[in-house]
Each structure stands twice: as C-alpha cells, then as structure tokens.
C-alpha cells in the first residue's frame, strides 16, 4: 500500500508539469498555426485570395520548421526562450520550443481541413456578394469545424509526445519521469505507471475530441 502511495506522489508533479506544458503549448501553437493555416488555404492556387508569392514563402517556412528534429529545435530555440521567458531551461521554457514545433503542424492540419470544404459552398457565398474575409469566418471555418476539432485533438496528442522530450532541457513531465526512473534507475514500475498516465490522458483527449467533433457536425 505504501508503495502505491509513493508511486502516486511521485507521479503527481510530473503529471501536472505535462498538463501545464501541453495546455500552454497547444494554446500558443494554435494561436500561431491557425492563422497561418488559414492564410495558406486562401492564398494557394484557386483560393479566394490567391497570392502565389505569399503561399510559396509560408509553405517553405512551414516545411523547414517541420523538418527540424524536435530535440535539435529545442536547442536552436534557446535564444528565443531566453527572450520570451527569461530562461532556457525548465518547464515554462519548454513551452517555447513545443509551441514552435507544433505551430506548423497546426497550420497543415488547418489547411487540409479548410481545403476539404466544398468549393460550391464558397462559390454560393461569393455569389451573394460576400467579402473573402466573411467567407473565411462564416463559411470555411464553420464548415470545417468537425475536421478542425479532430485536427486539434491530433495536435494535443502530438504535443504530449513531444513533451516527453522536454526532460532534455529540464522541462520535467511524465516522459522525463519515465526516463529517469525507468531507464536510468531500472524502476520499471515507475516507467509503467508514467506510461499508463500518458495512455489515459491520450484516450481521454481523443474521446473528448471525437465527442466534440460529432457535436459540431450536422
């Protein structure tokens, strides 16, 4: 029984750290990635604000960011972390590379969700004299909402995966716990417990995402 209590107290802080990192990283990644995805969609060929030069530049940036292995990105972004949060290590500092790593992912998820919206709907809206910005907010985004919710769910789960590496820069979290105890100290029970918490988290998020997506689709 004691062992169980120990395990739980051992898990408490890393669980909280993971939730903290994932929540804020998702928030910032979406804040950057969502508008980027929208701009990519409307500026691409045949888009409602077609602008090939803009599309090419953004498309290139997104591809470059997505090519970086996360572990390298964390180090490369030290100067940015210092600028934003004043330090390069720790849980809060990890949010910076996590957000930057996930933002281009969000952009692609948003781009593909919006691209799925039937061109006929955009055309029908345009035929009523709607401004492209109105079409974005009243047609593209609402019509893509179920896909966007599922894409966001995917993003959160991805960030949980990335956050396991945050231990490398002192970010803590469940992944870090599993590596330190399970790998370095051969305490397999801690490793298994950490993985179980992560599995429960992912299941809960996916379940909630699916339910929400169903709710918003008519």
């Amino acid at each position: 029984m004691d062992k169980m209590a120990d395990l739980i107290s051992l898990l408490a802080t890393p669980t909280w750290e993971t939730l903290y990192m994932v929540f804020f990283s998702t928030l910032f990644a979406t804040a950057i990635g969502f508008p980027l995805g929208v701009v990519l969609t409307v500026t691409e060929k045949g888009g409602i604000l077609e602008k090939e030069s803009v599309y090419r530049v953004l498309d290139g940036i997104v591809n470059i960011c997505r090519s970086f292995p996360f572990i390298i990105l964390m180090i490369v972004l030290f100067p940015l972390s210092r600028l934003v949060v004043g330090t390069t290590i720790g849980t809060t500092a990890s949010i910076v590379p996590l957000s930057i790593a996930a933002a281009p992912f969000v952009a692609r998820v948003v781009e593909s969700a919006l691209r799925e919206v039937d061109g006929g709907l955009v055309e029908a809206a345009a035929s009523t004299g709607a401004h492209p910005v109105v079409i974005i907010f009243k047609v593209l985004i609402p019509e893509a909402l179920p896909s966007l919710v599922l894409g966001e769910t995917l993003t959160v789960i991805n960030i949980i995966g990335y956050s396991a590496m945050a231990g490398a820069i002192g970010g803590g979290g469940l992944g870090d716990l599993a590596v330190r105890y399970g790998f370095h100290r051969f305490q397999t029970d801690v490793l298994i417990a950490a993985v179980i918490v992560i599995i429960v988290m992912v299941q809960a998020i996916q379940g909630a995402g699916n339910a929400l997506a169903r709710r918003v689709s008519h």
Partner: peptide
Amino acid sequence: RNVGMIFQQFNLLSS
C-alpha cells in the same frame, strides 16, 4: 447582391 443564384448541388451551408 442583386443577382441571386441557385445550383445543381444546392450548396447549402451544412453548419
């Protein structure tokens, strides 16, 4: 705004 249009596939907003 002064020219309405209807379509073969209706093109109603499902949301």
